[in-house]
């Protein structure tokens, strides 16, 4: 058992069995979160560093908490106040961190493929905390954990990914993962925010929110990434809400027990109506706790094992 790999860079390269193992391992990890003593000694003496070149609240905090609950020490590089501002290259920063004896590096970077690059130049394990528009594997894994916890399995589940697919690494990771696990994935958004040839990933493409939502089991609402929208890809935020916002009326088109997911942070009244975000169908708050459990599982599974088959008793 265990992930036989140094890094977790995306769901594209993980097998269904590996995804299953990560989700299974997160179940006992989640129990630890509800204990009075939220700490196990498993990663004692290990160091986990977060290296975030983009802003983040939950991913970074979630990784740091996960590492601490597993007994590891954490260190975080705040890029804004670091030597990066003096012009230090990405490679040099990475090597500096590595020479301090870090075992696992969590990277977030605006350039797609940066996690692969880092994994190649350091001996430490690398977990991708989001690279450009490519992948955000831990977000997709926690989304999948949430769906499985509520629904038991993925087979035949109709999962809608709604919004700005073009800029969304969350969407890509979810597509890789969910299709591998046997779910039916529907993507829907304005044509200008839909990447070309997305159907080649095995998803159904819709441009009308209503068509995609019909009979859906799960709706994963993406954040409209206002910081990446300078090219006039849609007229106004208000029009976006009118056509693609998840409103109570649109939610009624899905199955009555459909789950509503959102990776956060939410733009209330833009991609999601406040009534929907706060409805009983919404799993948004639970997703945060599940994220810690998933990250604990990954840190455990990436821990180095030996080669013998011996045990203790």
């Amino acid at each position: 058992m265990g992930l036989n790999r140094k890094d977790v860079l995306g769901l594209q390269e993980l097998t269904a069995e590996e995804i299953q193992l990560i989700l299974d391992t997160a179940v006992p990890m989640k129990d630890i979160l509800s204990r009075e003593i939220k700490k196990v000694p498993t990663l004692r003496g290990k160091v986990v560093a977060t290296l975030f070149y983009e802003p983040s609240t939950r991913t970074r905090m979630s990784f740091e908490l996960a590492a601490k609950y597993m007994g590891a020490d954490t260190m975080s590089l705040a890029v804004a106040t670091s030597s990066v501002q003096k012009g230090e290259s990405f490679r040099d920063t990475a090597q500096t961190i590595e020479s301090m004896g870090v075992d696992t590096v969590i990277l977030r970077h605006s350039v797609s493929g940066s996690a692969q690059y880092l994994a190649k130049i350091v001996k430490a394990s690398v977990i991708n905390g989001g690279d450009g528009t490519r992948e955000h594997p831990t977000q997709a894994l926690l989304d999948m954990f949430t769906i499985r916890e509520k629904r038991g399995s993925f087979a035949g589940m109709k999962v809608v990914i709604l919004g700005d697919i073009l800029h969304s690494r969350v969407a890509r990771s979810n597509i890789w993962g969910l299709t591998k696990m046997g779910a039916e994935v529907r993507v829907v958004g304005p044509p200008t925010l839909m990447p070309p040839e997305i159907d080649k990933l095995g998803v159904k493409v819709y441009y009308q929110a209503e068509d995609a939502l019909e009979g859906a089991d799960v709706i994963n609402v993406l954040r409209l990434q206002l910081e990446r929208q300078q090219k006039g890809l849609f007229p106004t935020v208000r029009e976006y809400h009118q056509l693609y916002g998840l409103t109570p009326a649109r939610l009624k088109l899905a199955r009555p027990d459909a789950l509503v997911l959102h990776p956060g942070p939410m733009n209330r009244g833009v991609e999601i109506a406040p009534e929907v975000a706060d409805s009983p169908q919404s799993t948004i708050v639970e997703q945060v706790a599940n994220g810690v459990a998933i990250r604990m599982a990954l840190l455990y599974l990436l821990m180095e094992g030996g080669s013998s088959s011996e045990g203790i008793s």
């Binding site: 265990g2 391992t25 498993t42 094992g305 030996g306 013998s308 088959s309 045990g311």
Partner: peptide
């Protein structure tokens, strides 16, 4: 999660 031999044994045990 409490074992003292996790980094020396393999394959890694399932939690």
């Amino acid at each position: 999660l409490y074992r003292d031999d996790l980094t020396t044994i393999g394959p890694q045990p399932m939690v």
